[in-house]
Amino acid sequence: MKRLELPDVQVGMELPELAIDVTATTVILGALASRDWRPMHHDRDFAQKRNGVRDIFINTPHNAAYFERFVTDWTGPAGRLGRLRFRMKDSVFPGDRLVFSGRVEKVEVDERGCGWVDLALASRVGGKVTTECSARVAIPTGPGDNPWKRRGDDWQP
């Protein structure tokens, strides 16, 4: 099982790229999984006529779920997300090939001994950025550490 630890990480390190072929099923599955029944995520006519876009598009929680997957594919299950911030610059539609990339911006151990990695992430379609994202993820500082066990003041995301 994959387990990324803090000594394995350096500023400037690139995350392995992830590419997803988006389909109508993908978009609708993500909307249903997030209990988002709004029609622009499942009804093309509505999306075109009311939102003025070309098709149904990925919703906000689905977008977040993709970034979570992208980060924890890299860290392994011991990685614990503390913070995720993203700006959606363009919608993602069926037929798009969505490509995720990322880079390590900062590596630190906080005053409570928690190991943190700050990441600059992005998703692109055809080379154009659709979402900019920053993530702060805790990973073990060494073999005996587990960020998921941190509670209260020992967890400062």
């Binding site: 599955l29 999984a33 997030s34 979570e68 997957r69 594919d73 299950p77 011991a78």
Partner: peptide, 25 residues
């Protein structure tokens, strides 16, 4: 809903699929 969400992004993180891993972590 957890499985539907994981399926929507093809997230295979064992933390959510393997009870032993979840218990340990």
């Amino acid at each position: 809903y957890i499985y539907t969400s994981l399926a929507s992004v093809e997230n295979g993180n064992p933390l959510f699929w393997d009870e032993k891993v979840a218990e340990e972590l």
